[in-house]
Simulated assay, not measured.
Amino acid sequence: MAPRSAPSARRLRIGVELRRMRERAGMTAAEAARALGTTQGQMSNIEANRFGVSADRVRTLAHIYGCTDQPLVDALADMAADRTRGWWEEYRDTLPPRLLDLAEMEHHAAALRVTQVINIPGLLQTPEHARALFREAVPALHPHEIEYRISHRIKRQAILHREQPTPYTAIVHEAALRMQFGGRDVARSQLKHLAEASEQSNITLRVIPFDGTSFPTTGHGVDYFQGPVPALDTVEVDGAHGSQLIDAVGQLEKYRVVLDRMEAVTLKPAASRDLIRRIAQDI
């Protein structure tokens, strides 16, 4: 299987952070290249991570830029040194690169916070529920494409059940619980699965009830990936035209506030679980 034609979003982040370090140091790309003993073109390749960058080079550049944030430097060096091929690479020829990036970021996240208003979070979906959603995709997916996506989605869920499971907080609106994608049987099974999953020690599920107060949201799903250090956090926002990855400092702070304010109007986990089970009984 041939290598990916472009670096993953996670590897691109290394170059983004190196460029930010350089800019904070007040150095141009040409000045940084001279200090490193290379060309400006090679410096551009480093910051774009076109050919990858070594952990040693990350540390050398951090020294040149006078970066004193050692936890950030260590985290970037670890990212640069990690050349492991993840299971998601099996899907490189069958799924869009953004789905591979999503699986990679989930795999490496220190913790995850997600919010959904209309849909059940992907990591908590049953195969039948996911199949019902994929059948409604626009443009339409071929049957084999649907099965690839379901397989990929189920494998992503492994991070919640591994030996050291990822801490996962999901904020779900009651509207999502009452949607009957795939029909009554599929919806009931999905809700029972959701209630059972919420009993895991690493999963916190909180529901915003219909009779709750107002909260900030665009109606789109939001996934907040906590990095090894706060500076390496990432947000993914789903929209009608696809997903968007956000890592600007101001935007990360905005979404932390949005998630905090949404969580503040949720039911407590036990009450959320009770509501899920009542809705399942009513279907």
Rank of each mutant, 00 (worst) to 15 (best):
S8V: 04
S8F: 13
R10K: 07
I14E: 04
I14R: 02
G15C: 05
V16T: 14
R19P: 05
M27E: 07
T28P: 02
A29S: 15
A30R: 15
A32I: 03
A32Q: 12
A32K: 08
A32R: 09
A35G: 07
L36G: 09
G37Q: 08
Q40M: 12
Q40L: 01
Q42P: 00
N45G: 12
F51Q: 08
G52W: 11
V53Q: 00
S54L: 03
R57E: 09
V58Y: 08
V58H: 07
R59T: 10
L61I: 15
A62I: 03
I64H: 07
G66N: 06
D69V: 12
D69L: 12
P71L: 11
P71F: 10
L72T: 02
L72N: 00
L72A: 01
V73W: 07
L76S: 05
L76I: 11
D78A: 15
D78C: 00
M79C: 04
A81V: 03
G86T: 06
W87G: 05
Y91K: 08
Y91L: 10
R92Y: 03
T94P: 01
L95E: 10
P97G: 09
L100G: 11
M105I: 10
E106F: 06
E106R: 05
A109S: 11
L112V: 05
L112N: 04
Q116F: 04
V117C: 13
I118E: 15
I118F: 08
P121K: 15
G122M: 09
L123N: 04
T126I: 01
L133A: 08
V138L: 04
P139T: 14
A140L: 13
A140I: 02
H142S: 13
P143K: 02
P143S: 08
E147F: 09
E147L: 05
Y148R: 11
R149A: 08
I150M: 10
S151Y: 00
H152C: 07
K155W: 03
R156K: 09
Q157N: 08
H161M: 13
H161A: 15
R162E: 06
R162W: 06
T166A: 07
T166Y: 06
A170R: 10
I171M: 06
I171S: 02
A176H: 13
R178V: 03
R178Q: 12
R178A: 06
R178H: 06
M179I: 09
G182E: 04
G182P: 07
V186S: 05
V186L: 08
V186Q: 07
A187M: 06
L194I: 03
A197Q: 15
S198Y: 03
S201T: 14
N202S: 09
L205W: 08
P209Y: 01
P209A: 02
P209C: 04
F210N: 10
T213P: 11
T213K: 09
S214K: 13
F215E: 10
T218D: 06
G221N: 03
V222Q: 01
Y224T: 01
P230S: 14
V235K: 00
V235L: 00
H241Y: 13
D247S: 13
A248W: 02
A248Q: 14
V249A: 15
E253W: 01
K254L: 12
R256K: 12
R256T: 07
L259G: 00
D260I: 03
R261E: 11
R261I: 10
A264N: 10
V265P: 14
K268H: 14
S272W: 07
I279R: 10
D282I: 00
D282Y: 05
I283K: 03
